[in-house]
């Protein structure tokens, strides 16, 4: 059974079809990139996979459970338990330190544990910046805090929306290296991006165009 199975989903806003009959599967431990230009439906796809939105039509099976008909409350619980989110704009709480930002995720999931949060920061190379506020961190450092926050509750899927969109090349490489490490450890990664360089390091790339799945590219040269 696939970890994520999307069956013929459409998302319709009035006369606009943001997603049009899209189907795809993601296996456990797989690293998949979803690519496409602006307006192709990437963000809608990300919101549906991330349990922040529901499709107008079709089914989304996450770990065998159809989440397309779940209530908002249940979607919140599923998101909390199964999904780790990484954002282009990092979205750190600006008045909390790096370690506190990681602990917020623990707070909503189970029980805050500062030691574990520090270990997560150490894993992304930020142990020494743990007590800094986001405003005292560089963009790359903020993104790494965001990654640590996404990983802290051991989610089934890490869903990254344009994770390198606001980073310079050096920080982009650091983030991609972290993704490689996560993949080696068996984490399922879905990376939404419009950057071909980020997409081509994934095992598989799904290209969206005008809300439809235009093509699927398997990276034959994939290396962990």
């Amino acid at each position: 059974m696939s970890l994520l199975e999307i069956k013929n989903i459409s998302k319709i806003y009035g006369e606009l079809k943001a997603l049009d009959d899209v189907s795809l599967k993601v296996e456990k431990g797989e690293w998949v990139a979803i690519m496409g230009p602006s307006g192709s439906g990437k963000s809608t796809m990300m919101n549906i996979i991330g349990c922040m939105d529901k499709p107008s039509l079709g089914q989304v099976l996450l770990d065998g459970v159809d989440i397309s008909k779940e209530s908002n409350k249940n979607l919140t619980n599923i998101r909390r338990d199964k999904i780790g989110l990484i954002f282009q704009q990092f979205h750190l709480v600006n008045y909390l330190t790096a370690v506190e930002n990681v602990m917020v995720s623990q707070y909503y999931h189970s029980m805050p544990d500062e030691k574990e949060a520090m270990e997560a920061l150490a894993r992304v190379g930020l142990a020494e910046r743990a007590k800094h506020l986001p405003s005292q961190l560089s963009g790359g450092e903020q993104q790494r805090v965001c990654i640590a926050r996404a990983l802290i509750n051991y989610p089934e899927i890490v869903l990254a929306d344009e994770p390198t969109g606001n980073l310079d090349e050096a920080n982009e490489n650091i983030v991609i290296d972290i993704f490689r490490q996560l993949h080696r450890e068996g984490t399922t990664l879905i990376v939404v991006t419009h950057d071909p360089e980020v997409a081509e390091v994934a095992q598989r790339t799904l290209v969206l165009e005008h809300g439809r799945l235009a093509k699927e590219i398997v990276n034959e040269n994939f290396k962990d």
Binding site: G50, M52, T76, N77, R79, R80, D81, L85, H91, V93, N94, V104, S105, Y108, H109, R149
Partner: peptide
């Protein structure tokens, strides 16, 4: 921030 907290499962 509220949206983020909700996204994190609040």
């Amino acid at each position: 921030e509220i949206g983020l907290r909700k996204a994190l499962g609040a």
